[in-house]
Each structure stands twice: as C-alpha cells, then as structure tokens.
Simulated assay, not measured.
Amino acid sequence: MVAKDADGTPMWRCSGTLISPTVYLTAGHCTSGATTVEVWFTADLEAGFPGNGYPSTGEVAGTPYTHPQYNEAAFFVMDVGVVVLNAPVVAAAYGTLPDENALEALARVRGRQDQTFTAVGYGLQQANPVFVVAERIRMSASPRLVQINSGLTGAHSLLLSNNTATGGTCFGDSGGPNFVGTSLVIGGVTSFALNGNCAGTGGVFRLDRKVARDWVLSMM
C-alpha cells in the first residue's frame, strides 16, 4: 500500500492483508496521518515496475482508519489500522484474526523457540547503513518466536527473529501479516525493529488482544 496526504502526494509504503473483500488490515503507523491509500496485489513488483519497485497508483483505493487508542508517541502499544476499500477485491482466501488471547498458549509451551510464523510483505531484504543495501526481493520469511509476555514486549507485542538464518522483516514490511505457522491466522502485524539493520529481532503487534481484535471486527 501507498499512503497519501490530502493533496494526493505519496508519503510512505507499507504492507498488509485482505481480511475481507473490502477490508485491508495493516499497522496503525501506516494509516495514521494518511488521507487516502492506494493498494495493489501484484505478485512480483520488481518485474512489473522495474527501476523504482513500487507504483504510486494501486489497483484499488481506500480510506484509512486507525485504532482510536493509537498514540504516535507510543505507537507500538496499539499499532493497528485498516483500509476500507472503495471496491471489493475477490480472493481465493482471506486472512483471519486469531481467537481472543489465542497466543497466550505460546507463553506456556516448552520449546517455544520452535514456533514459527510466516511473515509476508514487500519490504527490503536487508538494510546496511553503510552500503545502503535495498533489495526488494523477499516477500516472505519464517521467523521464530523469541519473546512473548516479557518486560520488553509487554502484553501487546511479540518479538520474532530477524536474521539471515531464520528470515524476518525489514523496512516496508510494516503492517504485513505474521501468520501463525503456515495457517492464514494473523497472529500480529509487523510493527517495529530494534535496530537499523533489520537484524536481530523484530516487533509484531498482537491481534489476539480483545481491544485490538474487537475494533478490527467492528470495521468489517
């Protein structure tokens, strides 16, 4: 997706998931401050748009909405938004929300480091502040659960692995889904990184918490 201001000027790009024919789920920091949004579903952007990787006009436009409790100063606490599309998009399947508090079970399971997610997005493959590596070639990865219900994550986030061994997310993946295992259940949306190299661990905003889940369902 491309977020645009009131003048139609592109501001930033994010990723997301169709959860119904007219509702596109993403992060709150992707919708906050935007007036309109353009969304497209091209499988291979590199081939379709050589040179810049992303178009500024999508296949369908929509209106962005951000959770009413979103706070820019602490965006990661309620980092969820949706785009209501101007026209329905028919897909073979749609992402689904987890049951309320469904991810709590992961905190009680031994060997939780073996729990994998499927992270999807149109972000960078990696980022290097010296050489400015920016290859938009990775559309999915299989990060592993690192932390849940910790002092760092609180009750609202997960930390997943971001490294060359297990994959992960990077700039441009914000708002993209982190499916539980290989299912279509969206455990959370990509929210933040802990360093500028897109390495180590990445933060995911949980969608199984009632306050977030209920709002998304109300928008459907």
Rank of each mutant, 00 (worst) to 15 (best):
T31W: 06
A119L: 13
V204A: 08
D44T: 15
A141I: 10
S140Q: 10
G33M: 04
W12N: 04
A91F: 08
N178L: 03
S140D: 07
R13H: 10
Y122W: 06
S20I: 11
G181P: 09
Q115D: 11
V133L: 14
W215Q: 09
P21T: 07
N71W: 09
T35G: 10
S191G: 07
A134C: 10
G111M: 02
A193F: 03
A102N: 05
N149R: 12
T42V: 12
P68A: 03
I148Y: 05
Q69R: 04
T201S: 03
F41I: 09
G151F: 11
G33C: 03
T36Y: 04
D173H: 06
P177I: 07
T22G: 02
M139Q: 09
T31G: 05
V2M: 12
P98F: 01
R144L: 11
L124R: 00
L25E: 12
D214R: 05
V77R: 13
G81R: 03
T201Y: 12
T201E: 14
R110M: 11
G151S: 14
V80Q: 00
A155I: 10
P10W: 04
V204R: 11
V39F: 06
H29I: 08
V189Q: 13
F131T: 15
A6Q: 08
T96W: 06
A47D: 15
G167L: 06
G175K: 03
Q125W: 02
A193D: 00
G172C: 02
Q69W: 04
T164E: 06
L106T: 05
T190V: 14
A61W: 04
L97W: 00
R110I: 13
R206E: 00
A127M: 01
T17S: 15
V82H: 06
I148L: 04
H67S: 01
C198E: 00
V77C: 00
W12P: 03
N195H: 12
A155W: 04
V180W: 14
T26S: 04
T26G: 03
V39L: 00
L217N: 12
T57E: 15
H67N: 08
A74F: 07
L25D: 12
R136F: 11
N195F: 10
Y65V: 07
V146F: 02
M220W: 06
V204W: 11
Y94G: 14
F179H: 11
Y65Q: 14
P177A: 01
G168T: 02
E46C: 06
E100V: 11
E104P: 00
H29F: 05
W40S: 03
T153S: 07
V39C: 01
Y122V: 01
A34S: 14
T26Y: 03
W12M: 05
G168V: 05
S150L: 01
C14F: 09
A87Q: 15
T169C: 09
S142I: 05
S20D: 02
V133P: 03
A91E: 08
